[in-house]
Amino acid sequence: MKRIYSIEDACIGCHLCEVACITEHSLSKDPVKAFLHEPERPISRCTVEEWDGGVVSISTNCRHCDQPDCLRACISGAVQKNAQGVVMIDTEQCVGCWSCVMACPYGAIQRNLARKKANKCDLCPDRQSPACVDACPNRALVYREGSQK
Protein backbone atom coordinates (compact mmCIF):
# COMPACT_ATOMS: atom_id res chain seq x y z
CA MET A 1 0.00 0.00 0.00
CA LYS A 2 0.97 3.65 -0.33
CA ARG A 3 2.40 5.22 2.79
CA ILE A 4 3.81 8.59 3.83
CA TYR A 5 7.57 8.65 4.32
CA SER A 6 9.60 11.40 5.92
CA ILE A 7 12.97 12.62 4.69
CA GLU A 8 14.68 14.26 7.62
CA ASP A 9 17.39 16.03 5.63
CA ALA A 10 14.77 17.80 3.55
CA CYS A 11 12.57 18.89 6.49
CA ILE A 12 12.83 22.62 7.16
CA GLY A 13 10.69 22.51 10.31
CA CYS A 14 8.03 24.83 8.91
CA HIS A 15 5.09 22.82 10.33
CA LEU A 16 3.08 23.36 7.13
CA CYS A 17 2.26 19.62 7.16
CA GLU A 18 0.51 20.15 10.49
CA VAL A 19 -1.36 23.20 9.20
CA ALA A 20 -2.47 21.24 6.13
CA CYS A 21 -3.57 18.29 8.26
CA ILE A 22 -5.59 20.50 10.61
CA THR A 23 -7.15 22.29 7.66
CA GLU A 24 -8.04 19.07 5.83
CA HIS A 25 -9.75 17.68 8.93
CA SER A 26 -11.65 20.89 9.69
CA LEU A 27 -15.27 21.59 8.78
CA SER A 28 -14.49 24.43 6.36
CA LYS A 29 -11.18 23.12 4.96
CA ASP A 30 -10.02 26.71 5.16
CA PRO A 31 -6.98 27.34 7.38
CA VAL A 32 -8.07 30.72 8.74
CA LYS A 33 -11.55 29.48 9.57
CA ALA A 34 -10.18 26.23 10.98
CA PHE A 35 -7.71 28.02 13.25
CA LEU A 36 -9.84 30.97 14.28
CA HIS A 37 -13.53 30.45 13.88
CA GLU A 38 -14.51 26.81 14.08
CA PRO A 39 -15.74 25.61 17.48
CA GLU A 40 -13.08 22.91 17.67
CA ARG A 41 -9.73 23.10 15.99
CA PRO A 42 -8.74 19.62 14.79
CA ILE A 43 -5.54 18.10 16.16
CA SER A 44 -2.80 17.47 13.64
CA ARG A 45 -2.28 13.79 12.84
CA CYS A 46 1.36 14.36 11.96
CA THR A 47 3.82 15.66 14.54
CA VAL A 48 6.84 17.78 13.66
CA GLU A 49 9.60 17.20 16.16
CA GLU A 50 12.39 19.72 16.52
CA TRP A 51 15.69 19.87 18.33
CA ASP A 52 17.98 22.78 19.04
CA GLY A 53 15.55 25.41 17.82
CA GLY A 54 14.84 23.61 14.61
CA VAL A 55 18.37 22.72 13.49
CA VAL A 56 17.09 19.17 13.28
CA SER A 57 13.45 18.46 12.47
CA ILE A 58 11.28 15.66 11.17
CA SER A 59 7.59 15.14 10.58
CA THR A 60 6.47 11.86 12.16
CA ASN A 61 3.30 10.07 11.15
CA CYS A 62 1.31 6.85 11.24
CA ARG A 63 2.90 3.90 9.45
CA HIS A 64 -0.40 2.11 8.82
CA CYS A 65 1.30 -1.06 10.05
CA ASP A 66 0.57 -4.49 8.64
CA GLN A 67 0.04 -5.79 12.19
CA PRO A 68 -0.91 -2.61 14.01
CA ASP A 69 -0.05 -2.52 17.71
CA CYS A 70 -2.79 0.09 18.19
CA LEU A 71 -5.41 -2.28 16.80
CA ARG A 72 -4.26 -5.11 19.02
CA ALA A 73 -4.34 -2.90 22.09
CA CYS A 74 -7.72 -1.28 21.40
CA ILE A 75 -10.23 -2.49 24.01
CA SER A 76 -13.37 -1.33 22.20
CA GLY A 77 -12.69 -2.44 18.63
CA ALA A 78 -12.63 1.19 17.49
CA VAL A 79 -9.32 0.72 15.67
CA GLN A 80 -9.68 -1.32 12.49
CA LYS A 81 -7.74 -1.76 9.27
CA ASN A 82 -9.91 -1.18 6.22
CA ALA A 83 -9.80 -3.10 2.94
CA GLN A 84 -7.23 -0.65 1.56
CA GLY A 85 -4.98 -1.23 4.56
CA VAL A 86 -5.64 2.15 6.17
CA VAL A 87 -5.74 1.96 9.96
CA MET A 88 -8.81 3.92 11.01
CA ILE A 89 -10.41 4.90 14.32
CA ASP A 90 -14.18 4.79 14.63
CA THR A 91 -14.62 7.79 16.89
CA GLU A 92 -18.15 6.76 17.88
CA GLN A 93 -16.82 3.49 19.25
CA CYS A 94 -13.66 4.95 20.86
CA VAL A 95 -13.93 5.37 24.63
CA GLY A 96 -10.72 7.37 25.07
CA CYS A 97 -8.86 4.77 27.14
CA TRP A 98 -5.57 5.59 25.35
CA SER A 99 -4.55 1.95 24.97
CA CYS A 100 -3.59 2.76 21.37
CA VAL A 101 -1.42 5.64 22.63
CA MET A 102 0.26 3.16 24.97
CA ALA A 103 0.92 0.67 22.19
CA CYS A 104 1.92 2.72 19.13
CA PRO A 105 5.72 2.61 18.88
CA TYR A 106 5.65 5.51 16.41
CA GLY A 107 3.92 7.89 18.82
CA ALA A 108 1.46 8.49 16.00
CA ILE A 109 -1.85 8.59 17.89
CA GLN A 110 -2.94 11.82 19.51
CA ARG A 111 -5.28 12.36 22.42
CA ASN A 112 -8.21 14.64 21.77
CA LEU A 113 -8.83 15.50 25.40
CA ALA A 114 -11.82 17.75 24.73
CA ARG A 115 -13.73 14.98 22.99
CA LYS A 116 -11.99 12.13 24.81
CA LYS A 117 -11.28 10.38 21.55
CA ALA A 118 -8.13 9.07 19.98
CA ASN A 119 -7.04 10.86 16.84
CA LYS A 120 -4.94 9.48 14.01
CA CYS A 121 -3.93 9.75 10.37
CA ASP A 122 -6.55 8.50 7.90
CA LEU A 123 -4.39 9.15 4.81
CA CYS A 124 -6.96 11.78 3.71
CA PRO A 125 -9.64 9.60 2.08
CA ASP A 126 -11.07 12.54 0.09
CA ARG A 127 -7.79 13.35 -1.64
CA GLN A 128 -5.49 11.86 -4.25
CA SER A 129 -2.52 12.28 -1.93
CA PRO A 130 -2.48 13.29 1.74
CA ALA A 131 -2.69 17.00 2.57
CA CYS A 132 0.58 16.97 4.52
CA VAL A 133 2.48 15.59 1.54
CA ASP A 134 0.97 18.12 -0.87
CA ALA A 135 1.72 20.98 1.52
CA CYS A 136 5.39 20.19 2.14
CA PRO A 137 7.37 22.97 0.40
CA ASN A 138 10.61 20.99 0.28
CA ARG A 139 9.27 17.55 -0.58
CA ALA A 140 10.33 16.15 2.77
CA LEU A 141 7.20 14.02 2.76
CA VAL A 142 6.64 11.48 0.02
CA TYR A 143 3.62 9.29 -0.62
CA ARG A 144 4.42 6.04 -2.34
CA GLU A 145 4.20 2.26 -2.28
CA GLY A 146 6.27 0.67 0.44
CA SER A 147 6.37 -1.29 3.67
CA GLN A 148 5.70 0.17 7.10
CA LYS A 149 9.35 0.80 7.90
Partner: peptide, 8 residues
Protein backbone atom coordinates in the same frame (compact mmCIF):
# COMPACT_ATOMS: atom_id res chain seq x y z
CA UNK B 1 0.70 10.00 28.75
CA UNK B 2 1.10 11.33 25.22
CA UNK B 3 3.18 9.14 22.91
CA UNK B 4 3.78 6.56 25.64
CA UNK B 5 4.04 3.89 22.95
CA UNK B 6 7.44 5.24 21.93
CA UNK B 7 8.70 3.75 25.20
CA UNK B 8 6.98 0.44 24.41
Amino acid sequence: VDRAGIFA
